[in-house]
């Protein structure tokens, strides 16, 4: 081993990870399983994100969608929306991608021991919460009920449906609603707030984890507050342009937050509630 291998290559240099498996979740969402080629990243917590490099195309922030501490490859669920995410979503088994991380705040699972949990997600918002959901489903606590409420535009835009079924079997109260459906769909039709009109427990004292587009989080947070959940106990995952992940590039500012450092997971009250209603912040 040469001396240089002990020297940190610096915070901008990605570790090489190999794509060991991939799954097309739906028309524009793909999950990649990645294993380190040499230099693994540090252990992560649920809710944190990594910077993924498609070599020659660029780097992009992607939340980690596997559970913390789980053995095996680290999972990222990528939505094909730009040049870099397209290159990542198109990568094949055996390809090498770059990885830096983990970055940002997490869902704070260790604080969810003695309280009921409501998880509300919209669209691909389940990806950043999938690790937390796996953890909550696989580590049941007698004094904790877990409720998952999922909203999607169309039935085929629901991500991880089989996994949600497994969580349901493990005791999680799962409800899914879509905006538009035909008779092949036997679940709810309506917006996610319509399946947030009651909870199987007292909202006061419960913790809510919410992830989705900002409008959806806003409406969901209001419904949760109507159900008695304290605004301070609602955690939301916010997003802005992220280019470095380490609070150096200035892009992910949202008012007082540098979201790669102070987020993505922030309490809804007092700051986020205001920030996500302000335009062009």
């Amino acid at each position: 081993m040469t001396e240089t291998e002990h020297v940190s290559p610096g915070p901008f240099v990605p570790s090489r990870y190999r794509v060991v498996d991939r799954k097309t979740e739906n028309s524009d969402i793909t999950t990649l399983w990645l294993e380190p080629v040499d230099r693994p990243i540090a252990p992560f917590k649920a809710g944190q994100f990594n910077m993924l490099t498609a070599f020659g195309v660029g780097e992009v922030a992607i939340s980690i969608s596997s559970a913390p501490g789980a053995p095996g490859a680290i999972e990222h669920t990528v939505r094909d929306v730009g040049a870099v995410s397209h290159a990542l979503a198109s990568s094949q088994i055996g390809d090498v991608v770059g990885l830096r991380g983990p970055f940002g705040t997490d869902w704070g699972l260790e604080s969810l021991t003695g309280c009921n949990v409501v998880v509300v997600v919209g669209g691909i918002g389940l990806a950043p919460l999938r690790g937390a959901m796996r953890y909550l489903a696989e580590n049941p606590a007698p004094d904790r009920k877990v409720v998952l409420r999922v909203g999607a535009r169309l039935p085929d835009q629901i991500v991880f449906p089989e996994e949600m079924e497994r969580w349901r079997e493990m005791g999680v109260d799962v409800e899914v609603t879509v905006d538009v459906a035909d008779a092949a769909w036997t679940g709810h039709v309506g917006v996610v707030t319509q399946i947030l009109t009651e909870l199987p427990f007292d909202g006061a004292g419960a913790v809510a984890l919410v992830c989705g587009p900002e409008i959806m989080m806003r409406f969901s947070a209001r419904s949760l507050i109507d159900l008695g959940v304290s605004p301070e106990n609602i955690r939301v995952s916010l997003e802005r342009n992220m280019q470095c992940g380490i609070a150096l590039c200035g892009h992910c500012q949202l008012g007082p937050f540098l979201l790669c450092r102070d987020g993505p997971v922030v309490p809804y009250a007092p700051l986020a509630a205001e920030l996500i209603t302000e335009i062009e912040r």
Binding site: D28, R79, V81, G122, G123, I124, G125, G151, A152, R153, Q157, D179, G190, V191, V192, T193, Q194, G212, P213, I215, M216, F219
Partner: peptide, 14 residues
């Protein structure tokens, strides 16, 4: 209101 919210395509991609 719920119907209006659905018109927004709440989980919209862009």
């Amino acid at each position: 209101q719920s119907t209006r919210v659905r018109l927004l395509d709440l989980y919209g991609h862009s």
